[in-house]
């Protein structure tokens, strides 16, 4: 494939990755920003989202679009609820101590993973996309000094992948409105800025925490429902989204919402584009080192303000 169309294809694929990553990572960023804890089980909420989406669509039967629409609403709520329960039974009791939270969430990670293995099994199972048309894409070329369009071999995307990008953007705008315009967002931001002060002003901090934890998990689950018609639900699938979300949250400046979105775009797109230039595994090594070095030389993240 020529360079131009190749780059466009890689960019489009990168955009899908970025969209899903932005959703997952903003959930993690929300939790980290408001509660100042690292949730290692975040990837498992993602995995649960995918697995539950399979359950729901499979149980309902009927048309693919209907089952998927139901899953899109029901699954994030279920996962969010589970996260709230986790928060109230475990995290609250250890007082959100940063180190103990890490250990506890590692434990929770294993629990979710194993319960899924025991009930759902070890298979990777597909969910039928509600719609999926292959769209061949045109590219520009100059023939005898005139611009003309042609359809390069292999340059295409599916309508569903485009919809994923659109849906992710919509949800992120919604989240941003929630955080900046609603009373709930105000409570969250107040808690984020000064927990003790918020408590003194009568904000039910514990309830805000539980809610934030649930919302963060629901974001991961929603991302998973969107991706599961492209990938498959598997009980070990939470690992990569967790790693990538971590990277995104840190590069984005630890809890900064716009920073997280920008970082997700950067990481998602570069994942696609770097693969154009290097052999795949070498590309992964370079991308990984690049992220590490960015953090080493800009520890506050690319988009975070240096807080002193």
């Amino acid at each position: 494939m020529d360079f131009g169309p190749y780059l466009m294809l890689a960019t489009l694929e990168g955009a899908v990755t970025a969209a899903v990553l932005a959703l997952t990572a903003s959930g993690l960023a929300l939790v980290f920003g408001v509660m100042r804890v690292v949730n290692v089980a975040h990837g498992e909420f993602f995995m649960l989202g995918a697995v539950l989406a399979w359950w729901v669509t499979n149980m309902l039967g009927g048309s693919a679009a209907f089952g998927f629409a139901v899953a899109l609403i029901v699954v994030p709520v279920l996962v969010g609820f589970l996260a709230v329960v986790t928060d109230m039974t475990v995290l609250k009791r250890i007082n959100y101590d940063p180190e103990r939270t890490i250990v506890a969430t590692i434990g929770i990670l294993y629990i979710f993973q194993q319960v899924t293995l025991m009930t759902y099994g070890p298979d990777a199972r597909p969910v039928v996309p509600p719609f999926n048309t292959r769209l061949a894409l045109p590219w520009i070329e100059f023939v005898d000094g005139e611009i003309s369009l042609y359809w390069p071999w292999g340059l295409s995307i599916t309508s569903y992948k485009l919809a994923v990008i659109g849906a992710a953007a919509l949800v992120l705008v919604g989240l941003w409105v929630l955080m900046t315009r609603s009373k709930l967002g105000l409570l969250m931001r107040a808690t984020e800025q000064d927990r003790d002060m918020a408590l003194a002003f009568g904000i039910p901090v514990e309830r805000v925490y539980a809610l934030v934890f649930g919302l963060g998990a629901a974001m991961a689950a929603l991302a998973a429902v969107l991706i599961v018609p492209i990938q498959q639900a598997h009980y070990l699938m939470g690992h990569d989204p967790l790693l990538l979300s971590f990277i995104v949250v840190i590069i984005g400046g630890l809890g900064s919402f716009p920073g997280t979105i920008l970082a997700a775009l950067l990481i998602g797109l570069s994942d696609g584009v770097i693969s154009v230039f290097f052999s795949p595994t070498l590309a992964k090594i370079l991308a990984t080192l690049l992220v590490a070095l960015v953090l080493v030389f800009r520890p506050q993240g690319l988009f975070g303000a240096r807080d002193t």
Partner: peptide, 12 residues
């Protein structure tokens, strides 16, 4: 790469 989950970008 063994950790990969999306593949289209390699096919060109």
């Amino acid at each position: 790469p063994p950790t990969e989950t999306s593949f289209t970008k390699y096919f060109p």
